[in-house]
Nucleic acid binder design. Structure first.
Length: 724
DNA sequence: ACCACCTGTTATTAT
DNA sequence: AACAGGTGGT
């Protein structure tokens, strides 16, 4: 087999990693060093050269996007489908295992996944039943508590509360929540991981089966694994297996959801003869961008140590822009985007990154104003929209009548006369009988335990679900969905609403039908669960991949997303907006131990997304939660060496005193001039220095004159004088 | 029981 | 600024 084709395009370090014969391989891969490439090529190497069966390979990633990309690239290299190979996120793989072995995992066959929204609803209900006042005991806090415990692999019985009132109350909620999930056949995200772990830990024969099957384990983004994920990998990794992990401690940005950077060090301890391979050559960014990233991250302590370098050219300086306010910041970005495209470049090259989703609105407005096509990732995603969740709730009930979360959601949506009172009666009955709401409701209808009106309405609802289910057993998924949208009355309800949003909702429902049409069940139903219906597969897909926010995937567009979701991506032109203290680094993280360092890693991730040009923008005035704030410039900007940056200040259409403020970045300019300095010119009058380049006789400055606007002047000739 | 309107609260990051 | 939850009228 031709080995050279797999390694010919790789550098020495990459080749070493791809071909390593070791049992355990740890690849410390800096940003832009070809991490995914190494993984893809290593899989190809295993299959083509070492003649390993794809069937014995397990590759784990952190996002569905990454999984899809990896599989696609592997198949391209192999020039054939990688049949039998498991590639997916920890969550999707855990889900797959639990479906295949639901009995051993102690789950009902039709168990369903609870997303964060659903989870919070269930917790709220449970807390209400425990008579916990939700002002004193915010449900969000309980949600956070439960998830954090699950991240660490702890069941309520394993939590020591030492008489602490807070902890013991939370544990009570945790117990009750578990009970609620159990009767309803619901599994939250973290439960997927924890159950999958327990499945193996408690069933040695199953574990043995998978240990023997997965001779080759590869894990991407290892710095993002949490305790339970690591434990799960450790279980699977048996003496005979080979394991490759790839990670970068400087890009660990998920500590808040339980990720442990220490897992990388732990790996070295657990696999003492593991080979460590470092990828330090960056192929992505200009040296300027890389230097800036290295400088920022160097402010962190406790790094594993790694020095990224590049053969790339210096490129453009990093541009800092101080906007008057957030609108103007957005307009500035839009204008730069137009410049970029006018120079013959593509919208696809561009990303706008921000710390929090709330920032996307204003940026979005600016794009709309200038007719710049854009695509927002994150925020409220498709499968999280109310009308979509409603429809999914019907579909879920059709699959699993005991799904209490879905039952509660749609029992009175659209309104059918089953108000809070009636549902309370059902809830009480369910609690009494220790059954699901569906079963309680059925019993009460039969036993005539409800007031006549409610009884009729409830009977109607139960019948509707049964009817939807039985009448669509034989039809395609998309038709099934269409029938549900029509017969449930959801379409009618949405059609009757007025306003712009109603139209969008209608379109979303239409879009859902399209999504089911495009959904390929053959691809999504794993070999080991052939009984899975296309509907079940679709529901799982909807829960595990909330879906992107917008359609039009094929149109060229600017990509807008949070810094977190930008990890793993790269763009020639990158804007990072909102470089302000308390926004980035975020206030919330400043209060947490280690929070600032994680924010700094996030800054590192952001900076290293840029290939050619990077803009860092901030606003001097920003509206936050309705109030005006005057944030100071993010410390991360001051951590970048001044010689790598240039600051622009434009005289924009915003009405304000032009020479209002000194720039926060103070740099020495040539011949005693500096950025932001006011100057006087014999012909052009008063102006402010916004940029300069070159030294000595070559030095030139860019000045924004009050009257004449932007001018570029050679310092040697222009008779510029400082002014006040 | 339902709807419209008002009020208080609340925005980090996400599988 | 936006949304969930609560209040009061029908």
């Amino acid at each position: 087999m031709d080995a050279s084709s797999i390694i010919e395009s790789l550098n020495d370090a990459q080749t070493e990693a791809v071909t390593a014969p070791n049992k355990a391989l740890l690849v410390l891969a800096g940003a832009g060093s070809g991490k995914t490439r190494v993984l893809v090529h290593r899989i190809a190497w295993l299959v083509k050269v070492e003649q390993v069966s794809a069937h014995s390979i397990l590759a784990v990633t952190f996002t569905n996007k990454a999984a899809k990309e990896m599989l696609g690239r592997v198949e391209d290299m192999l020039a054939m489908p990688a049949r039998g190979m498991w590639v997916g996120t920890f969550h999707s793989i855990a889900h797959r295992l639990l479906r295949a072995h639901y009995r051993d995992a102690g789950l009902p066959e039709g168990f369903q996944i609870l997303d964060a929204q659903d989870q919070l609803r269930v917790i709220k209900r449970v807390m209400k039943e425990l008579n916990l006042d939700d002002n004193e005991w915010p449900p969000k806090q309980a949600q956070w508590f439960i998830n954090a415990k699950k991240d660490d692999g702890l069941r309520p019985g394993n939590i020591q509360h030492h008489g602490d009132f807070f902890v013991s109350t939370m544990v009570k909620v945790y117990y009750a929540y578990e009970e609620a999930c159990k009767t309803a056949g619901l599994v939250d995200f973290n439960e997927l991981l924890l159950r999958a772990y327990e499945l193996w830990a408690n069933n040695p024969h199953l574990l043995k089966h998978y240990q023997e099957r997965f001779q080759h384990i590869l894990v991407d983004e290892f710095q993002d694994t949490n305790a339970i994920q690591y434990a799960w990998i450790r279980l699977l990794c048996h003496e005979g297996n080979r394991i490759t992990i790839v990670g970068d401690d400087d890009q660990s940005i998920y500590g808040w959801r339980g990720a442990k950077i220490e897992n990388i060090q732990q790996f070295e301890n657990d696999f003492p003869d593991c080979k460590i391979s470092r990828l330090e050559q960056n192929y992505r960014s200009t040296s300027t961008i890389l230097k800036a990233a290295n400088a920022v991250i160097s402010y962190n302590s406790d790094r594993m140590g790694k020095s990224l370098w590049t053969e790339g050219n210096e490129g453009e300086p990093i541009t800092i822009y101080s906007a008057f306010n957030e609108q103007e910041e957005a307009r500035f970005i839009a204008a730069r985007i137009e410049d970029w495209v006018q120079q013959g470049n593509s919208y696809n090259d561009i990303a706008i990154l921000y710390r929090s989703n709330a920032q996307s609105r204003i940026l979005e407005d600016a794009m709309l104003n200038r007719n710049i096509p854009y695509r927002i990732y994150g925020g409220l995603r498709f499968f999280e929209r109310a009308e979509i969740k409603d429809t999914m709730a019907y579909l879920r009930l059709m699959t699993n009548r005991d799904d209490d979360a879905s039952f509660e959601r749609v029992v009175n949506t659209p309104a059918r006369g089953l108000g809070e009172k009636s549902v309370d009666l059902i809830r009480a009955k369910a609690r009494e009988d220790e059954t699901s709401l569906w079963q309680a409701a059925s019993k009460m209808v039969v036993d005539q335990l409800l007031p006549p009106r409610a009884r009729t309405a409830m009977a109607g609802f139960l019948h509707l679900i049964n009817e939807l289910d039985s009448s669509t057993k034989e039809v395609d998924l998309w038709e099934q969905t269409e029938v549900v949208i029509e017969h449930s009355g959801l379409m009618d309800k949405v059609s009757k609403e007025k306003g712009e949003k109603a139209q969008a909702r209608k379109e979303n429902l239409q879009e859902l039908v399209n999504a089911t049409r495009e959904f390929d069940p053959d691809e999504m139903i794993p070999e080991e669960t052939p009984d899975m219906t296309p509907l079940m597969a679709f529901i799982a897909h909807a829960s595990l991949e909330a879906g992107d926010t917008q359609a039009d995937e094929y149109q060229e567009s600017v990509q807008m997303m949070t810094l977190h979701s930008a990890k793993g991506l790269e763009f020639p032109l990158v804007f990072i907006a909102g470089m302000e203290e308390k926004l980035f680094p975020h206030q919330m993280s400043l209060d947490e131990p280690g929070g600032l360092e994680e924010e700094r890693r996030l800054a590192y991730v952001g900076i290293t997304r840029a290939m050619q040009q990077l803009y860092l923008t901030h606003a001097e005035k920003r509206r936050m939660w309705g109030r005006e704030t005057y944030p100071s410039v993010s410390r991360f900007i001051s951590e970048i060496p001044a010689e790598l940056m240039t600051e622009v200040r434009l005289n924009t259409q915003v009405q304000r005193p032009v020479f209002q403020k000194q720039s926060p970045i103070k740099r020495k300019g040539p011949e005693g001039f500096h950025l932001g300095q006011l100057v006087q010119h014999p012909k052009f009058g008063k102006g402010i220095i916004i940029n300069y380049e070159g030294e000595g006789p070559q030095a030139s400055v860019q000045v924004n004159f009050e009257k004449e606007g932007l001018k570029k002047l050679m310092l040697a000739y222009a008779k510029l004088e400082p002014s006040s």
